[in-house]
Computed example of a mutant assay.
Amino acid sequence: MNSAASVRKLTVRHRRTTALDAVDLAFGTGVHGLLGPNGAGKTSLIRVLATVAPPTSGRVELLGGDVSAPAHRTAVRRRLGYLPQEFGYYPGFTVREFVAYVAWLKEMPRAAASAAVEGAVARVGLTDRIDAKIRTLSGGMVRRVGIAQAIVNDPDLLLLDEPTAGLDPEQRVDFRALLRELGRDATVIVSTHLVEDVAAACTEVTLIGAGRVAYRGTPHALAALGEEAGAEDFGDNPIERGYAVALRRHRSGAAPTTSGWSVTR
């Protein structure tokens, strides 16, 4: 498998805290879910892959090259989409204006940008609010604007940090369908604490615990862990129980569970 994003011995430290500890991972075409408790290192990984934060040490390759090279890093930023957990926006802009602004930042050709903006807004179900000021939108609508700006350039690598925060159940169902569509041709990495989103939309799951990989495999294989004897009290459904089993094994010092998937593939 050709990897759109890979890290080798990736270490990220914040002062005295180690957020990621010598992590090896690779991601190819499809939808990849990042799971883990708060503080596990998910956001640190997403930020490094988005090239908005440098690693403390290790190698990061995105879209065919090492992003430590400034020219390649600049090229990568035109080809990726990113929705951070804390999404900043200009409240006085309309939805159209803001998504168009991001298209301009991505250096999209002017002739194609207008249709791309309208298409991205339509994919998140906001066509009827495209000329509304962002400050007039609900929290869930603002989050959908964030998704629209992340996909306006039809990215080869899409990075989403807690994208369903603020979405209602119907909107989350629509979002999962959008993820599956995007994952046919692109590499989509979704950091979330909602295991049901992973089960419904992702082709692969990576569970991070205390800065290290605790599990790598399919949602089906993770759910199978939750069917094991003794897991009954760990959650309300098999994938939640599998999450708890994998995390507890990791905390006990066991090697990462990979279920037929190589952590460094």
Rank of each mutant, 00 (worst) to 15 (best):
residue 4 A to W: 13
residue 9 K to D: 15
residue 11 T to V: 12
residue 18 T to W: 02
residue 19 A to F: 02
residue 22 A to H: 13
residue 25 L to N: 08
residue 28 G to V: 03
residue 32 H to G: 08
residue 32 H to I: 14
residue 43 T to H: 04
residue 56 T to V: 10
residue 59 R to N: 12
residue 79 R to W: 12
residue 83 L to F: 11
residue 85 Q to H: 11
residue 91 P to R: 08
residue 102 V to Y: 01
residue 103 A to C: 12
residue 108 M to V: 09
residue 108 M to N: 07
residue 115 A to G: 10
residue 115 A to F: 03
residue 127 T to M: 00
residue 131 D to E: 14
residue 135 R to V: 12
residue 137 L to P: 00
residue 137 L to D: 00
residue 146 G to I: 00
residue 150 A to C: 07
residue 158 L to Y: 01
residue 167 L to W: 01
residue 174 D to F: 01
residue 183 G to R: 01
residue 185 D to Y: 11
residue 186 A to L: 04
residue 189 I to T: 10
residue 190 V to L: 07
residue 191 S to L: 10
residue 193 H to F: 09
residue 194 L to N: 10
residue 197 D to S: 09
residue 198 V to H: 02
residue 199 A to Q: 15
residue 201 A to K: 10
residue 202 C to M: 09
residue 203 T to R: 15
residue 203 T to C: 13
residue 207 L to Q: 04
residue 210 A to W: 01
residue 210 A to H: 05
residue 216 R to W: 11
residue 217 G to W: 02
residue 222 L to H: 08
residue 222 L to C: 09
residue 226 G to M: 10
residue 227 E to K: 06
residue 235 G to R: 11
residue 235 G to D: 09
residue 239 I to G: 09
residue 243 Y to E: 07
residue 247 L to H: 13
residue 247 L to R: 15
residue 249 R to L: 14
residue 252 S to M: 13
residue 253 G to A: 04
residue 256 P to V: 02
residue 260 G to M: 06
residue 265 R to P: 11
